[in-house]
Structure formats: C-alpha cells, structure tokens
Design a protein around this nucleic acid. Structure first.
Lengths: 209, 209
DNA sequence: TTGCTCCTCACGTCACGTGAGGTGGC
DNA sequence: TTGCTCCTCACGTCACGTGAGGTGGC
C-alpha cells in the first residue's frame, strides 16, 4: 500500500551513490575510491552494476568521515573500523602530538612571514633580486642583513622613490594603508617586532609618506 | 702552483651534486628533480654527464629553499626567481592568510581531540564499536550523545569493569596516570571542557579508581 | 683494482580530480 | 524519447623516495 514499498527484509532502504554523496558531502569519486580500496564496499549492486548502499554502509561512512577528520590516513581508518591494528586511543594521541607540532611550525612560519612583510612594507617596490635577497637573508641565513647590504638596498630604494610621480606615491600609500587595515593590532605589533629583528636599530619607524 | 687550480675564468669552483646536497641539506633526488623541471638547471655537465653547479647556481638554490620554506609551490618559486608572475609580496600575503587558516583549523582539531581523549580516558577500555560511536557522536553529528546511547555505553563499561582483575584495574589506572602526566595543566583543563561538552551534566568527575 | 659517486629510467606515494567513452534508469 | 545518473578505465596532481641496472671518477 505504501509508496515504493522497499524490500521488507531487515529494512534495506538502499542508497544510490549520488544520493549518498549529496547527503554526506563526500564526493562520488571518493565513495568509488573507498570502494576500490576496500574501505567502504557497498553491500550490493543492482542488475547493471550500480552501487547500492545500505544503512549500515551509511553508518560506516559516517564513522569513516569522523576518523578521517582527525587526520588518520585511510589505511588507519580502515584498521580502526575493522578492529585490527593498534589501540585507537594511541592513534588519537599521536594525532594530537602531530597537530600540536603543526601548530608550532605554522606559528613560527607566520611570525617569519609577518617579519618579512613588515620589512617589505617599509620599502618602495624593491626589485625582485632585492626582495629575494631579503627573504634569503631573513630565513636561510638566520641573521639580519649586514649594514652594507642594507645600505645598498636603501640607496636603490631612494632612487626608485625619486623616480615616482606624486600620483604613484599616493597610490603606494593607499595600497599600504589598505593592507594595514586588514591586519589586527596584534599582527601589526608582530610585524614591527619582526622588522626590528631584521633591520638595525633606528629603522623601526615607518616612513609615513 | 695551487692545489687543484680550477678554471680561472670568472671563478667557477664547481660543485658536484653530492657535495651540494651535503652542504645544503637538500637531497640529491630533489636537486635532480629541480633540474628536470627546469627550476635549478646546473650551469654545466662534465664529460660523462655529471652535473656541475657554479656559485650562482648555489645562490639560486639558497633562494629556492627560502621561498619553498614559505610554503610556495615549486612553480611559484620558479616564477618569483625568474621575475615572472605576480608581485611576490602578494604571494607572501596569501601565504600568511593560508598559514593563519591552517592554525585555526589545527587548533580546532586539537580541541576536539582533547575532548575525545578526555572522554575516552573516563571509560574503561571501551569496545571498538563504542569508541567509534563516541568519535562519531562528537564530530560527524556535531552534538552530544543521547542519554540512551550514553546509558548503553555506561552499562557496557560496567560489565567490562566487573570482568577485570584487580591487577588489570591497577594497570589501567597506571596507564591513565602516565598519560595525564604527559599533559600540561592547560591541556588537562581543555580536556575537561571537551568532556563536559560531550557528556550530560554531572558526568564531569573522573571516576578516581 | 676497489669502492664511491654519479647517471637515467620508472614505479610508488596519497587521496582523490578530471575527462573519455559508453550504457541503463526514471 | 530525452536527460540524468551511473559505470569503468586511465592519466594527472605534488614533490619527491626508492630501487633497478649500469658506467665513470678518485
């Protein structure tokens, strides 16, 4: 009597791959991939080979997505779901360690980037070689620029400045302001600290046009 | 007169690939890779085809490593070094954005992991399905477990508890303590908060054996 | 003369994305 | 009957790692 009475046995409302993808946000391609590697093999196929997922399949998919979200590899996810392999809590602890490492590394990189950007924002359109030299000096070399390098950059900057029209200067100032407006107070402070570390004393003040 | 007088012309002390790798920490395989994709083509080869790097090549390598360290792809690095492509400062700003995004995501994940681990440390060897259910409940579903789910887990835990020998219980307590000792006060606090979010009120207190 | 270094394929990694070319389902 | 969905290859991604099999350099 019901609309589209599905097979009664064991409640098997079967999902098509596209429906499942739409409902879970997992791509069709990913679902096929999980099938191929044996991580999530649909319980059935229809007569022409189309995948049909059952509710338990869907449940496994949810678990898969949750574990994958913790950064486990698909191989690890498979081992956890199948009860093989190490204590999953140990895996989660390792993930925690890795995430904390990643945070530290990313924060260090953020600091360096702010420093370099701070130094660059103090320059007027440095030439590419100059810029690369600056980056090189700040990172690979792990030390501030030498006074001679700096003097040369300053001189070249002065030259470039002198060749700019008032309009161009105004545009540069606007650009810089737009960028500064996007930064938080904390980021600006960090940028200043980074610049201070790179440049010799007395170079901290922005050349307010 | 000198030992191994190299070619006088333009100071060309040529490096072998192995020496360069040793000196810079970049693998031989990476150097060959950079050669193949045209990012760092050694200035010469000897009679039998061995790569020979000049000082300018080494300089470019240093710059390459610095830029790569900012998270630029090798394609972007190539464009910056060759002066093609967009303003490198714009690239660095994009990298900054990405790094900050990564930090936020990683911190969120860290928080979730601490919450799950906190909840798991309150249980006695949950079965794999239970554990996966817990993880599923905390993440994919974005909501705490229902009272029924929780009640079932509690009951199963009680069963598991009852089947443990005193020695096994003591070992469990030791394990848990060892893990807690590795955590900072801040992490423990965050873990408690995570657990509080997962479990209904009144479930916060660790069952101190 | 013996290692040591170097060479070029070429497949593997990881989790899919992206067509190509074709067939059934609603 | 027309789209829409689904199918299976199979190559591409990204930055290399890792042998295989072989030849010159010190």
């Amino acid at each position: 009597m019901n609309t589209e009475a599905a097979g009664r046995a064991g409640s098997e409302p079967r999902w098509r791959i596209g429906q499942l993808a739409e409902a879970t946000g997992v791509s069709v391609r990913s679902l096929r991939h999980y099938d191929r590697i044996g991580l999530l093999v649909p319980s059935g196929r229809n007569a022409v080979g189309h995948r049909r997922y059952t509710d338990p399949d869907v449940r496994r998919l949810h678990q898969l997505v949750a574990l994958r979200g913790f950064g486990l590899s698909l191989a690890e996810v498979g081992r956890v779901l199948d009860g093989t392999g190490a204590d999953p809590r140990e895996l989660l602890r390792q993930q925690l360690d890795q995430v904390e490492q990643r945070i530290v590394v990313a924060q260090r990189l953020r600091h360096t980037l702010l420093g370099v950007l701070g130094a660059l924002d103090d320059t007027v359109e440095p030439s590419l070689p100059q810029l690369v030299e600056l980056i090189e000096g700040m990172t690979a070399m792990q030390r501030p620029l030498t006074p001679e390098q700096l003097e040369q950059m300053v001189e070249e900057r002065r030259q470039a400045m002198a060749e700019l029209s008032p309009d161009e200067l105004a545009e540069l100032a606007r650009q810089r302001q737009r960028y500064a407006d996007q930064l938080s107070a904390e980021e600006l402070a960090e940028m200043r600290r980074g610049r201070a570390a790179l440049l010799p004393p007395g170079w901290g003040q922005p050349t307010s046009a």
